[in-house]
Amino acid sequence: MLFPLALIVVITIVDINVPADVHLGPLLVVAPALTASFAGPWRTGLIGLLTVLAQAFIGLHFGVLFTERNVMIQVVALTVLSAMIVFFCVVRERRRAELAKVRSVSEAAQRALLRPLPQRIGSLQITSLYLAAEEEAEIGGDLCTATRTGSGTRMIIGDVRGKGLSAVGESAMLLGAFRETADRYTSLGALAAALDRSVCRYLSDFIEADGDIEEHFITALLLEIPDEDPAVRMTDCGHPPPLLLSRDRVATVTSPHPAPPLGMYEMAAGDYTIDEFSFETGDTLLLYTDGVTEARDRNGTFYPLALRVARWTKSDPEALMHHLRRDLLAHCGGHLGDDAAIVAIQRTAPESGHRLGLFNHAAH
């Protein structure tokens, strides 16, 4: 507030001391205009009143306040402009309050849908990152969640076709289906088939009226990580393959027989293969969605995830995620064209006991 006050004082003093044919009084309107950029209507109105008084003081100093029409017009004009600035301040504050309410409801809904993954599940240390493409959103069409089973941990990472808030409904549906059925099936293949039926049923019930049901599907990667066995079992439903960081090496774990994405009208016909690979203590498994690998720089070059990750193979999951976030946003100029999710899972020495419970992924 000192700046607009000082501005009023300086303009008034200079206007009094310059030649009589030079009129700087109209510049006083700058003070309330600047105040409106950081203050509310009451303080803006106060500065506006002071500018009007300052202009009147200048007219009184020269003895022309009530005798010269031009001075009276300047006072009236300052009064009208200050009142308009205060009015727009009031409108802005009301809209800001409405936006704050909407944002609080949105954040509550987003937290209910995607709750944070704990830093540790059994013998797994986990860190996750979620970057939504939609402005002012924390979630979109990408999803990830995990749950404990009797002998290990099951996880899913997926990507709904589309981006932003329009894909949240399908994302929420698949998360709910996974949470409900993850521990009911002995194999990942059976779990994938059940999830596919859930997605097809949802699309048939809610998307069919749009006329483009064939364009809706969800890529997904299902993982089962046993507590005792140093391995990972994986079923790939059209999702980008994970990266395995082991002994200063980065390997892409590609399924030789991936299934179609979920919701493709049971195209897989129940034929979901299960791939198994080694996952030793100290290894890190990196899961991601195509919003990461399809992020482009100003020249249209895709983000080289495997190449960049090779720099940080010795980092723990938290440090790795910090490096990836900074590097990815720098690559795409700070704005992603699609939702992006990354999860880093590191196997550590097993603890004396394993907590059971349901853990969900968060928007960070």
Rank of each mutant, 00 (worst) to 15 (best):
Q55K: 09
A56I: 12
I58R: 07
I58K: 02
I58L: 13
G59Q: 01
L60K: 05
L60A: 09
L60C: 09
H61D: 11
H61K: 05
H61M: 10
F62M: 11
V64Y: 14
F66I: 10
T67W: 14
E68W: 13
R69K: 14
N70S: 15
N70Q: 14
V71H: 09
V75W: 07
V76M: 13
A77T: 13
A77Y: 11
A77H: 10
L78C: 09
A83K: 00
M84S: 14
I85F: 04
F87S: 09
F88N: 01
V91H: 05
V91G: 04
R92E: 12
E93C: 08
A97F: 13
A97R: 15
E98S: 06
E98W: 04
L99G: 00
A100M: 03
K101R: 15
K101P: 00
S104E: 09
S104F: 01
V105N: 02
V105M: 07
E107S: 10
A108K: 06
A109C: 09
Q110S: 09
Q110G: 02
A112L: 12
A112K: 02
P116E: 14
L117H: 00
P118I: 02
P118D: 07
Q119Y: 14
R120G: 06
I121Q: 02
I121G: 03
G122H: 02
S123T: 11
S123I: 10
S123G: 11
S123W: 08
L124I: 09
L124C: 12
L124F: 10
Q125S: 14
Q125K: 11
T127V: 14
T127F: 12
T127Q: 12
S128R: 07
S128L: 07
Y130I: 04
Y130P: 00
L131W: 05
L131F: 06
A133T: 08
A133Y: 05
A133M: 10
E135K: 09
E135R: 13
E135M: 07
A137F: 10
E138P: 00
E138D: 07
I139F: 06
I139T: 05
G141M: 03
D142R: 04
L143Y: 03
L143K: 02
C144H: 05
C144D: 00
T145F: 14
A146C: 11
T147C: 05
R148I: 08
G150P: 03
R154N: 02
I156A: 02
I157W: 06
G158Y: 00
G158W: 00
D159A: 12
D159S: 11
V160C: 10
R161M: 15
R161F: 14
G162H: 12
G162Q: 07
G164T: 01
L165A: 06
S166V: 13
S166F: 04
A167T: 02
A167Q: 01
V168D: 00
G169W: 03
L175M: 12
L175C: 05
G176P: 03
A177I: 06
F178M: 03
F178E: 03
R179N: 08
E180W: 15
E180V: 15
E180T: 13
